[in-house]
């Protein structure tokens, strides 16, 4: 797919790391962030520093990430509400008594949610969609998953484009639904689109059979990934995991 994708073409060392390494590193890094005790404020500082370092290597500007990080906004709301609705001992912040536990919980969601979305955005910005699926395939994702994901990414633009064209066709013929009344048009459009997608799926399957489809996506030759590249690609996750281990170490 091309439209709406976050991938930023580039040739940085971050871009060149094999996708399976990047996927594992991203998951490990986010898990490390989430597992870090919320009182270990310094650890989140280290995590943020690691993310910033990866961006500077990848050559993606900070502002780009900031604009896209708003996707987690609904949970920021939760973070803001928690200090006021949680139980437990109260502390005064700017003259307002708020729950100490709720304050920490809010901070926890804000810090981990933000770091999580930044790490995921880093993965999305430096990896092509089809490479992401290839990485999942090399990480032994089930064959059905790889097939569905590959075809989905290949055809989502086609189908979204069809949806857009039917909408324009509808509007250009004088239909102008507003507010809730557009539900009818949207839903009937969805029904038509389902039928077209189904029939396209049947045609695609027959075309695949004609080209020798045997039930699973060919992976193509994969160059073996040397230990050095695993270490290089995994190093940010390693730093974050170390920060977690130190923070969580029972003193």
């Amino acid at each position: 797919m091309s439209g709406g994708v976050l991938y930023r073409p580039g040739d940085s060392p971050v871009h060149r790391i094999p996708p399976q390494v990047k996927l594992l590193a991203a998951f490990a890094a986010v898990l490390g962030v989430v597992a870090t005790p919320r009182e270990a404020f310094w650890a989140f500082g280290i995590d943020l520093f690691v993310v910033l370092a990866v961006w500077s290597v990848a050559g993606v500007p900070v502002g780009w990430f900031a604009r896209r990080a708003v996707i987690e906004a609904p949970f920021v709301l939760l973070a803001v509400v928690l200090p006021f609705v949680s139980g437990g001992p109260r502390v005064d912040v700017l003259g307002v008594a708020v729950s100490q536990d709720g304050l920490l919980a809010g901070w926890n969601i804000l810090a981990k949610g933000t770091l999580g979305v930044l790490i995921a955005l880093t993965l999305a910005a430096t990896t092509q969609p089809r490479d992401l699926v290839l990485g999942l395939q090399r990480l032994r994702a089930p064959a059905w998953f790889v097939t569905i994901a590959t075809l989905m990414l290949r055809y989502v633009d086609v189908i979204a484009g069809e949806l857009r064209r039917t909408r324009i066709a509808r509007i250009s013929r004088g239909d102008d639904p507003r507010f809730l009344w557009q539900a009818g048009a949207v839903a009937r459009g969805a029904g038509t689109l389902f039928l077209r997608s189904y029939e396209r799926g049947e045609r695609v399957h027959r075309a695949m059979l004609a080209r020798g489809w045997a039930g699973h996506m060919p992976a193509g030759p994969a160059a073996p990934v040397g230990a050095l590249r695993w270490v290089a690609g995994g190093s940010p996750a390693l730093v974050i995991a170390t920060a977690w281990a130190v923070a969580a170490w029972p003193v």
């Binding site: 709406g4 064959a143 059905w144 097939t147 569905i148 994901a149 590959t150 075809l151 989905m152 990414l153 290949r154 055809y155 989502v156 086609v158 189908i159 979204a160 949806l163 857009r164 969805a190 689109l193 389902f194 997608s197 189904y198 396209r200 799926g201 049947e202 695609v204 399957h205 695949m208 059979l209 489809w213 045997a214 039930g215």
Partner: peptide
């Protein structure tokens, strides 16, 4: 062998519906 390709197209349909 027919289910997965068809499911791929229908996943694209669901994805497109969520995208817009």
């Amino acid at each position: 062998d027919r289910t997965a390709p068809l499911a791929g197209l229908l996943a694209a349909f669901l994805f497109a519906m969520q995208l817009l």
